[in-house]
Amino acid sequence: TEDARKEAKKIIDNGGSPDEAAKFIKKYGLSEDQARELVKRAL
């Protein structure tokens, strides 16, 4: 979702790792793979 993508970008912009961002956005109901893909797109 757009919200999850924004959250991921915010985490990374604040110095978080892509892994942290992926873990965080899994709470939106995404699978591990979906979360990682979304983080990649957010970069």
Rank of each mutant, 00 (worst) to 15 (best):
T1E: 13
T1I: 15
T1G: 10
T1P: 11
T1C: 15
T1L: 15
T1Q: 12
T1K: 10
T1H: 14
T1N: 12
T1D: 12
E2D: 11
E2W: 11
E2G: 07
E2P: 08
E2T: 09
E2Y: 08
E2S: 10
E2N: 08
D3I: 14
D3F: 13
D3P: 06
A4N: 03
A4Q: 03
A4L: 14
A4G: 02
R5S: 09
R5Y: 15
K6D: 06
K6F: 09
K6C: 13
K6V: 10
K6W: 11
K6G: 07
E7C: 15
E7T: 09
E7P: 01
E7I: 11
A8C: 09
A8Y: 06
A8S: 05
A8W: 09
A8I: 15
K9R: 11
K9T: 05
K9P: 03
K9H: 08
K9A: 08
K9I: 12
K9E: 07
K9S: 05
K10I: 06
K10P: 01
K10Q: 10
I11K: 03
I11M: 05
I11T: 01
I11Y: 07
I11S: 02
I12C: 07
I12H: 03
I12V: 06
I12D: 02
I12N: 03
I12E: 03
I12G: 01
D13T: 09
D13H: 08
D13S: 10
D13A: 13
N14G: 12
N14S: 13
N14T: 08
N14E: 11
N14F: 07
N14I: 07
N14Y: 07
N14M: 12
G15S: 01
G15V: 01
G15H: 06
G15N: 04
G15F: 06
G16W: 11
G16L: 07
G16V: 02
S17E: 03
S17Q: 06
S17H: 08
S17T: 13
S17K: 04
P18W: 11
P18S: 06
P18V: 12
P18N: 04
P18R: 06
D19L: 09
D19S: 10
D19Y: 12
D19W: 12
E20F: 09
E20S: 06
E20H: 05
E20A: 06
E20G: 00
A21C: 15
A21D: 05
A22Y: 13
K23V: 10
K23S: 12
K23G: 09
F24H: 12
F24E: 13
F24S: 11
I25K: 03
I25G: 00
I25D: 01
I25L: 14
I25E: 03
I25F: 04
I25R: 03
K26G: 08
K26A: 13
K26V: 14
K26H: 08
K26Y: 08
K26D: 03
K27H: 05
K27P: 01
K27E: 06
Y28D: 04
Y28N: 01
Y28H: 04
Y28L: 07
Y28T: 01
Y28W: 08
G29W: 00
G29P: 01
G29V: 00
G29I: 02
G29R: 00
L30D: 01
L30E: 00
L30A: 01
L30I: 08
L30S: 00
S31R: 00
S31T: 13
E32H: 05
E32K: 01
E32M: 12
E32P: 06
D33T: 09
D33G: 07
D33A: 11
D33V: 09
Q34L: 08
Q34R: 03
Q34K: 05
Q34N: 04
Q34H: 04
A35G: 02
A35K: 00
A35P: 00
A35Q: 01
R36P: 03
R36H: 10
R36G: 04
R36A: 09
R36E: 08
E37D: 09
E37V: 02
E37T: 03
E37A: 08
E37H: 03
E37I: 04
E37Q: 08
L38Q: 04
L38H: 01
L38M: 08
L38R: 00
V39Q: 00
V39F: 09
V39G: 00
V39H: 02
V39N: 01
V39K: 00
K40C: 13
K40I: 12
K40T: 11
K40Q: 14
K40N: 13
R41Y: 12
A42D: 04
A42N: 03
A42E: 09
A42F: 14
L43D: 05
L43H: 06
L43A: 07
L43V: 10
